[in-house]
Design a protein around this nucleic acid. Structure first.
Lengths: 180, 180
DNA sequence: ACCGTAACCGAACATGCTGTTCGAAAGCGA
DNA sequence: TCGCTTTCGAACAGCATGTTCGGTTACGGT
């Protein structure tokens, strides 16, 4: 009666320990200043065990924000696709997600969200509006703005609430959406 | 009759060769896949010579976009500070600069411009407008949007002209500026 | 409770990169 | 031409990486 895919408790514990150790160390010293050895020591995991699970440090790091991304993806989809619905809600979900996973966001940053948010913007623009400007440009503009502010918010240690942030972004975005 | 600071031709040649080699290699393989040895080989420079000029690979890399930044800084200042002046002009300068240094921009990316542009935005917002929203948030929003689109434009191989890009950004920005 | 299997351990190893040192050779500006 | 600075290249220690393998431990299923 294990969950699908990972039946063995040892595997779960090992991977969790490694991810947790990497995140901690990256927050402390920054990604470049962390070696595989450091992670092994912090996680108290054998060397060969590490390489049985991950090809290298980058792969482990990637797995950290793959988890994050899947998580956020689920929450976004759980919102349903009613058109139009509350336009602040999806933004709130994003900011609340970051707020709930502060530690990990601090470590992995926000750039990995860019492609995902870019795609959402693109779709939204294609199905809803007719633009005078190229879709890619407009999508990139808004995706970068959102992700940028999100990253700033994380680095600045969350000086405002998630709801406030969502509302601010909303206000900043509406203007230029009508312009395009 | 040498320029100030670097009188010796050998120094100029060595540093230029190293920077050029690094940029080439980064474009080919990406930053992480380039070693100091690779740079030395490509530039045909002795190992000890490298470390006589730069502490490590990161320092050499940094020197690449310090040059870029100073260059852009000069061009921006050369515009003068007339208020308000043509609002598209400063944007054009940025996009033309990137267009003129394609190779280097491809290698070093655009993130290093972020702080500089953020500061410009901040100043502009402080002196000109009264906002209902926090300055940092608004500045970060627009700086990220601009830098993001700039980066996209570089990665997409400059599908539009610098002037077009500047005008598009302008249009996208005006709307949300009035909103804030 | 037991058993077969899969995961973990840890030491050892080859490999490759890093950053430093130093004496000799070469290039520069004056 | 002269004196000084730069460059060269080889050698070296140190460290991180990724792999191997035999022995040990913990898990899930029955």
């Amino acid at each position: 009666m294990g969950r699908r895919g990972m039946e063995d408790r040892r595997v779960r514990r090992t991977r969790a320990a490694l991810r947790h150790a990497l995140v901690e160390l990256v927050v402390e010293r920054g990604y470049d200043r962390v070696t595989v050895r450091d992670v092994l020591e912090r996680a108290d995991i054998g060397r060969s065990t590490f390489y049985a699970h991950f090809r290298d440090k980058d792969t482990l790091f990637a797995s950290c924000f793959e988890d994050l991304r899947d998580d956020l993806d689920r929450e976004m989809n759980a919102l349903g696709h009613e058109r139009p619905g509350d336009p602040v809600k999806p933004l709130s979900v994003i900011f609340e997600h970051a707020h709930r996973h502060q530690q990990v966001y601090r470590a992995v940053g926000t750039t990995h969200l860019h492609p995902m948010i870019f795609e959402v913007m693109r779709e939204h623009l294609c199905t809803h509006d007719e633009l005078r400007l190229p879709v890619d440009v407009v999508a990139e503009y808004h995706a970068s703005a959102l992700v940028g502010v999100l990253g700033w918010w994380v680095r600045a240690d969350f000086p405002y609430g998630p709801g406030e942030m969502a509302r601010m972004i909303r206000e900043l975005t509406v203007g230029s959406v009508t312009a395009a």
